[in-house]
Write a protein that binds this DNA or RNA. Structure first.
Lengths: 203, 203
DNA sequence: GAATTAACATACAGACCTGTTTGTATGTAG
DNA sequence: CTACATACAAACAGGTCTGTATGTTAATTC
């Protein structure tokens, strides 16, 4: 029962969706390929046709979400001469709000956070680390620009400011996603960012 | 070959030490009991004698480390009328320094961070959440005291300050432990705390 | 000092789960 | 229209890991 090319693409997408659901519920390591297959309405054969193994399926899944990094970078770059800090603050807040409204993004981020990267999934982790490093460079550049504009308080360096921002966003995401989403991440996140950026500003 | 009570206790300790090593290297889910047994110089029989299953072994291991919470609380409580904020800042910094010098603590925290708590290990996670909640109450109380002393800037509430502090410590620990310990956590951690607590202070 | 029992080692049954292979029906190119 | 490649399903082979049951020896107990 050969399907057409378009059918196959849809099957692949179904598998990714199912993997997202199942990995989210059982964790990447605990979910069997059979679980994923059943959720996708296919057999393991289909999965192994489209993906060579679980790790690659996971890798592909991780590629399908934009992390805060990428969005933040995009926002920051488009603001040439504007007030870099307020752009960054708004971009961070917007991203948190986007996250709070997008269940799929929440699931994928949860999977990435809850996963144990030691062993077979190390390569997935490495990719995250790479993205992270690039993001840090961009953030530091942005804070450097703020510094030359005289908009960064003396007690912060571009590096420490970027680090603090990164820690806060990572912290709030982890807190919210891993422990039952027990607060309003958009509101409290923006509030946290507001206070942090207040301390970034001179005086 | 029945051993004496003292011998048995030592065996148990050896198993815990081995579990720490193996779980750290392979992750809790990926390590087999056989791995742990071999590292401890016993057989799986010994492990199953002392611990009913892997989850309980893991739980016991998690009990053997003091998290930042507990130490911070202790420090904070002993400071009755002193400057709460500087006590908290120093306690946080001290704890990070302690962590940076204690390889065992690093390993256990790494295990706890990297572990996937969905499924069988949910109970371990719950314990962490409970400790966390209690810690937050204590921290909020401390910041509340600072507020009544007029030492907390108007833009912070006890709750938001406690949250920010928690996020920062969690963030720096996760960053350092999970991604190759690529910076001086004691120094940069203290620096981050310093800046955060500067923004806590009035003016 | 016999009986008991604690502290393991060893052996075993069986549950998964993975990766592969084989089969097959159907698009699709020539 | 035929030959082949594609997109799977189904069956298979093998390994690993867990939990338990049972054996064994030496501490304790009385």
């Amino acid at each position: 029962m050969r399907r057409s090319k378009a059918d196959a693409a849809e099957t692949r997408q179904q598998i990714l969706l199912a993997a997202e659901q199942v990995f989210y519920e059982k964790g990447v390591a605990n979910a069997s390929m059979e679980d994923v297959a059943r959720a996708a309405g296919v057999t393991r054969g289909a999965i192994y046709w489209h993906f060579s193994n679980r790790t690659e399926l996971f890798l592909e899944l991780s590629r399908s979400v934009r992390l805060p990094q990428e969005d933040l970078i995009a926002r920051e770059l488009e603001a040439e001469n504007a007030d870099v800090l307020s752009v960054l603050e708004r971009a961070g807040g917007d991203w948190l709000e986007l996250l709070s409204a997008d269940a799929q993004r929440q699931r994928i981020l949860s999977i990435l956070l809850r996963c144990d990267y030691s062993g077979e999934f190390a390569c997935v982790c490495e990719r995250q680390v790479d993205i992270d490093a690039e993001h840090m460079r961009a953030l530091e550049a942005a804070f450097g620009k703020a510094r030359t504009q005289g908009r960064l308080a003396a007690c912060w360096t571009p590096q420490t400011a970027a680090t603090a921002l990164r820690w806060m966003i990572k912290g709030v995401c982890a807190e919210w996603l891993l422990f039952g989403r027990r607060f309003d991440i958009a509101r409290e996140g923006r509030e946290g960012l507001r206070r942090l950026f207040l301390s970034f500003a001179p005086q």
